[in-house]
Nucleic acid binder design. Sequence first.
RNA 1: GGCGCCGUAGCCAAGUGGUAAGGCAGAGGUCUGCAAAACCUCCAUCCCCGGUUCGAAUCCGGGCGGCGCCUCCA
Length: 471
Amino acid sequence: MRLYNTLSRQEEEFAPQRDGVVRMYACGLTVYARGHIGNFRTFLAVDLLRRTLRHVAGFEVHHVTNFTDVDDKTIAESQKAGVPLREYTTRFIEAFREDAASLGLEAPEDTPRATDQENLVAMADMIAALESRGHTYRSEGSIYFKISTLPQYGQLARLDHAGMISGARVDSDKYEKEDARDFVLWKATKPDEPTWDCGVGPGRPGWHIECSAMALRLLGPAPIDIHCGGVDLIFPHHENEIAQAEGATGHQFARFWFHVEHLLMDDGEKMSKSLGNVFTIRDILDQGYRASALRFLLISVHYRKQLRYSWATLQQAEEAVKRLYDCVLRLERVKDGTGADGWEARLETARADFRDKLQADVNVPGALGAVFELLREANAAVDAGTLSRAQAEATLTFFADCDKVLGVIALRRQEESAPPIPQDELDALMAARVQARRMRNFAEADRLRAELDARGVILEDSPTGTIWKRK
RNA sequence: GGCGCCGUAGCCAAGUGGUAAGGCAGAGGUCUGCAAAACCUCCAUCCCCGGUUCGAAUCCGGGCGGCGCCUCCA
C-alpha cells in the first residue's frame, strides 16, 4: 500500500506500525451547523481510505473522528439560539450522523466529543505535561504554547515565517500573546461562557488541543499511523497539533499525514461556511438527486485534486451509477449458459487491476476505470448468452467486492428497495400488462406503461421478463 | 509579498519517460410489438514556447491561465 505523506511531500510505502492495526485519526466537524458537501468530500475520502486499508490492504482499522463541540462559533450560535451548548451541538451531531448514513460512510470506531469529561481531562493532562516541560506560559487567565521552545515547529506546513509579511494578517487573536505565532491551549472564559476545570485552572479548550489529546488517548501511544483532514487544516491546526503532542510526549505524533483537497463551487470558489456558498447533503437530495450519485461524484476525483462541483457532473454521475446498477440487475437474472471462455481469468485481471489502483495512493478514479472496463465485457457476455450461472455469480461477487470499497451499489440497492407506489399495486399492474402483452393487446400494455411512468416507475422488458425501476 | 497545487476530447476524469483507461454527452449500426437496456463502430496527441532524450502528456526552463494556504475553515 502506497500513500502520499504531506510530511515528506512524497508517496511512501505504508503499513501500520503495530499488530496490523491502522490507528488513524481524522479531524471532524465543528458542530454549529449542518455539514456541507465540501466537508463530506473530505469525510468520503477518508472513508475510501479506511475501506481500502480494510478490504484491499487487509489491515484492521481503528479510526477516530471527533466532533468539535466547543469553540467561539458553537458558543455564539448556541447563545443566539438560546439553547444550552451541549444540547445545541447534539442537534448537529445527529444531523451529521444522518447525512453520513445517507452517503454510506462506514462508522468510525470512535467519535469522541471534545466536551466529554474524559477528553477534557486528557487535554488538561497534556497541557500539564507541556507546562512541566516548559512549553507554555500563562497570560490573563489563558495558557499559551510558546513556539520558540520547539525548534522543529513548522515541519508539516513548511512555512517561511521570516517571510511572512505584507498581505498576510498575522495577529488577529484578541488575546495577549508574546509571539504572534503562539497559540492558545486553554482559554480564559467570559462569565457567560461554559467553563471547565480539570486541573489546569478554569477555562475552555483552545481549538487544537482536543485533537492531540483525544488522538493519543484513544490511539496512543505516539506515534499514531495516519492523521487525516482537509488541506486547509495543515496550517495552523495540524502544525499546532504536532507541537502539542510532540511537546508533551517527546515522540513523533503521526507517521503519515493524509490531506484532502477542497471542493470548489461551479464558479471556482471554495465552498465554506464563512463564504456562505454552501450546499448540504439534504439540499441536494431535496432537488431529487440520489445519494448514490452524489457519493459517486464525490469519490470520482482523486482526493488530492480539487473537485469542482456542478449539477451537470452530478447528473453524469447519476448516469454512471445507473449503468453500474443495471449491470448488476442483469447478472442477477442470467440463465445458465455454456460458459464464457477464460472468464475466470478475466475476472482475476480486473480484480488485480482494481486493487493495484487503490493501493497506489487510493486512486479511486483509476479503480473505477477497472470496474467499468469489466462491466462492458460482462454486458457483452450476457448479450452473447455465454455466461454460465456460476460465472454470473462470480461476476456479481467481483462487483460486490469492489463495492466494499466504493459503497455505491449498496447505496443504490437501498434506494431502489421500495417502489414509489405500493408493492401489491405495482405487482397487479405489472401482471395486467403481462397479460395484455400475451394477448397482443399492445394498446393496453402501453397504457399501463404510461400510467406507471407517470407515477415514477419505469418498466424494462427483456427475454427473461419485465423489471421495474425508479424513474 | 512568501509557499504550494493544477491546466488531458463538448463535459467529468485516470495515466507522470515508450507512444492517450474509464464515465457522461454525440453520430452511425445491431437487437426490439412499443419503450428502454445492452452490444459494435466512430469521436483527443495531452494550455503555449524552448530544452534534455532514440523516444515526453509525462523530466528541465520560460510564459499564459485557474485554485489553495499564509487568518476561522474539510
